[in-house]
Simulated scan of single mutants.
Amino acid sequence: MPPATVIGIEQKKQQRSPSSPRKFFAGKVAIVTGSESGIGRATARELCRQGASVVLNGLHLDRLEHTRIEFEQAGYSVVSCLADITDYTQSERLVATAIQAYGRIDILITNASISMRAYFADLAPEVFQRVLDSNVYGAVFPLKAALPYLTESAGSVTFISSISALNGMPSGSAYCAGKAALANLAHTLRLELHTTGIHFGVIHIGFTENDPDKRVLNATGQPVPIAYRNPRWQMTQTEVAQALLGHIRRRRQSTILSPAGNLNYLMNRYFPRLADRIVLWTMKHWARYYE
């Protein structure tokens, strides 16, 4: 397998100006799960700006409708489907929405997932299962439902993973396990389905700006605010979306994003013991977030 593509600061500077997008995805139909807000919404918007028709998805009707109306008012071709994609029947409905509206599927981006912030010893089993289900079945079920149409179009599938899948992250056991599973899944499907021409890729997202109301689950499953992150180490949602579309255009197998992601990847590749020592040291400073 070729080495992962690493997107750094200099490459980010080379991103195309948002005022004059090229229509790379003209005529293409994309499903973006979890696109009512956050990175999913930014990705859906960028796909639309580059000519695609997009099926929006989410769990909250008010947010989903707000996004759909906003996109339609901007002149974009979109439809929406309220669906929990950890349920296969609802995933089938999401795919049916795309086929009924546009007659084809060219791109599937499995973005929807639940994150967490709790140490394993304190984590309720049902919370572990919920987080793992959202990250694994939330990718598997939409893909399974869309596979016949992606085979017809020799389309593209991108699993949204995380830099935490590369080496693990304290307080994120279920999340890290789910995101790591996606890389192995993509590799396996690339081998099994190589004759279909479908592109299977994984993008490892690093620290990214979040919506102000974004929440993660604590040990008991209650939503809590995310921990503070220094903006200097973050990519914007638009930068992530643009990098993601570049990953799809080039049909890359693996891409790592953000300066923090680059550092994470390099440290764990060449200095794994030092990387673990740094993580263990910083855990002391994270303790106040789990009281």
Results as ranks from 00 to 15, higher is better:
257 L>F: 02
163 I>D: 06
180 A>L: 05
19 S>K: 13
213 D>W: 09
141 F>K: 05
101 A>M: 04
69 I>C: 11
285 H>P: 05
61 L>D: 14
58 G>H: 09
242 Q>S: 02
54 V>R: 03
211 D>H: 07
252 R>G: 13
232 R>W: 10
102 Y>M: 01
144 K>A: 09
264 N>Y: 12
159 F>R: 03
75 G>Q: 02
130 R>G: 01
166 L>S: 06
147 L>E: 08
275 A>K: 06
37 S>M: 14
94 L>D: 09
159 F>E: 01
239 E>N: 06
112 A>I: 01
60 H>V: 14
69 I>E: 15
246 G>R: 14
110 T>F: 01
33 T>H: 04
222 Q>A: 15
202 V>A: 00
48 C>V: 09
95 V>E: 01
205 I>L: 09
183 A>D: 15
13 K>W: 08
65 E>S: 09
67 T>A: 14
21 P>H: 09
151 T>C: 07
167 N>K: 10
76 Y>C: 02
183 A>P: 04
172 G>H: 13
102 Y>G: 01
108 L>C: 07
68 R>F: 01
174 A>Y: 00
197 G>N: 05
53 S>E: 04
131 V>T: 09
245 L>K: 03
256 I>A: 03
52 A>K: 07
99 I>E: 05
289 Y>D: 15
88 Y>G: 06
71 F>I: 01
22 R>I: 14
288 R>P: 08
124 A>K: 09
128 F>K: 01
216 V>K: 07
117 R>E: 12
24 F>D: 15
248 I>M: 04
234 Q>T: 12
195 T>W: 03
232 R>D: 15
217 L>Q: 01
71 F>W: 02
220 T>E: 15
17 S>V: 09
103 G>R: 07
66 H>P: 02
150 L>E: 01
198 I>K: 03
228 Y>S: 10
107 I>D: 06
195 T>C: 01
289 Y>I: 11
166 L>M: 12
50 Q>R: 15
63 R>L: 14
26 A>L: 12
120 F>P: 00
182 L>A: 12
79 V>Q: 07
46 E>L: 06
141 F>I: 05
74 A>N: 13
54 V>H: 03
177 A>Q: 05
173 S>L: 05
216 V>I: 14
61 L>R: 11
134 S>G: 12
130 R>T: 06
248 I>H: 00
226 I>G: 07
119 Y>G: 00
169 M>C: 13
30 A>C: 12
92 E>A: 08
24 F>C: 13
244 L>A: 02
247 H>E: 07
208 T>V: 14
71 F>P: 01
179 K>D: 03
198 I>V: 08
92 E>Q: 14
93 R>Q: 15
254 S>Q: 14
51 G>K: 04
223 P>C: 04
134 S>Y: 06
174 A>Q: 00
76 Y>F: 12
26 A>S: 13
39 I>M: 04
45 R>M: 10
220 T>P: 07
199 H>R: 05
62 D>L: 11
246 G>P: 04
35 S>E: 06
229 R>E: 15
77 S>T: 10
243 A>C: 08
71 F>S: 00
17 S>W: 10
231 P>W: 08
214 K>E: 12
80 S>R: 08
203 I>C: 03
11 Q>H: 11
189 L>N: 08
195 T>S: 12
243 A>L: 04
111 N>L: 02
29 V>Q: 02
240 V>Q: 00
116 M>G: 06
75 G>C: 02
73 Q>K: 13
9 I>P: 11
6 V>A: 05
89 T>H: 14
26 A>R: 11
